[in-house]
Simulated scan of single mutants.
Amino acid sequence: MAFTDVETAQVHEAVTGEPKGDDLCKLGLIYSTGQGGVIDYVEAHKWFNLAALMGSEAAKHYRRELSGEMDSDQIAAAQRAAREWLATRH
């Protein structure tokens, strides 16, 4: 799935407000495919984790697929980053 520059900007903007699971899942897709200019599996996994917490079934699927491409240190870093993001939201 390709996102336009406008869609990418909208997703980044949504994250600063009250994002929905779909917004976070889209951000995970952007990072996992390099549509934002760089492929970053740790960042993608973080957003998929957060989207899954918000009930996104697609994010659960993508996170599982992505985990197969990552080592345990990368997964741990993504989980830490997700917890840190959540901590800043409350």
Rank of each mutant, 00 (worst) to 15 (best):
residue 76 A to G: 09
residue 21 G to E: 02
residue 37 G to E: 15
residue 21 G to A: 14
residue 61 H to I: 13
residue 54 M to H: 11
residue 9 A to G: 07
residue 86 L to Y: 08
residue 4 T to A: 12
residue 31 Y to G: 05
residue 48 F to D: 01
residue 12 H to K: 14
residue 32 S to P: 01
residue 76 A to E: 15
residue 46 K to H: 04
residue 51 A to T: 03
residue 86 L to H: 07
residue 51 A to W: 01
residue 52 A to S: 14
residue 64 R to G: 06
residue 80 R to F: 15
residue 84 E to W: 10
residue 8 T to V: 06
residue 21 G to H: 01
residue 46 K to A: 02
residue 6 V to Q: 15
residue 73 D to R: 15
residue 90 H to E: 05
residue 17 G to Y: 06
residue 63 R to I: 07
residue 70 M to W: 00
residue 78 A to Q: 09
residue 47 W to V: 00
residue 50 L to Y: 07
residue 45 H to W: 05
residue 54 M to F: 08
residue 24 L to G: 04
residue 39 I to C: 00
residue 36 G to V: 11
residue 39 I to Y: 03
residue 49 N to H: 13
residue 49 N to R: 08
residue 63 R to P: 00
residue 80 R to T: 15
residue 89 R to H: 07
residue 69 E to N: 14
residue 62 Y to H: 13
residue 71 D to H: 06
residue 78 A to C: 09
residue 50 L to R: 05
residue 56 S to W: 01
residue 85 W to K: 05
residue 26 K to D: 10
residue 73 D to M: 13
residue 42 V to C: 08
residue 8 T to L: 10
residue 52 A to K: 08
residue 36 G to K: 03
residue 5 D to A: 07
residue 86 L to K: 06
residue 65 E to K: 11
residue 90 H to M: 05
residue 79 Q to H: 11
residue 30 I to R: 00
residue 45 H to K: 06
residue 56 S to Y: 04
residue 17 G to Q: 12
residue 1 M to W: 10
residue 4 T to Q: 08
residue 81 A to W: 09
residue 25 C to L: 09
residue 69 E to S: 12
residue 42 V to L: 06
residue 39 I to Q: 05
residue 15 V to L: 14
residue 70 M to K: 07
residue 72 S to F: 12
residue 49 N to L: 06
residue 85 W to V: 03
residue 71 D to V: 10
residue 7 E to F: 03
residue 54 M to V: 00
residue 10 Q to D: 10
residue 41 Y to K: 11
residue 65 E to V: 03
residue 67 S to Y: 02
residue 10 Q to L: 11
residue 57 E to P: 01
residue 59 A to H: 02
residue 38 V to K: 12
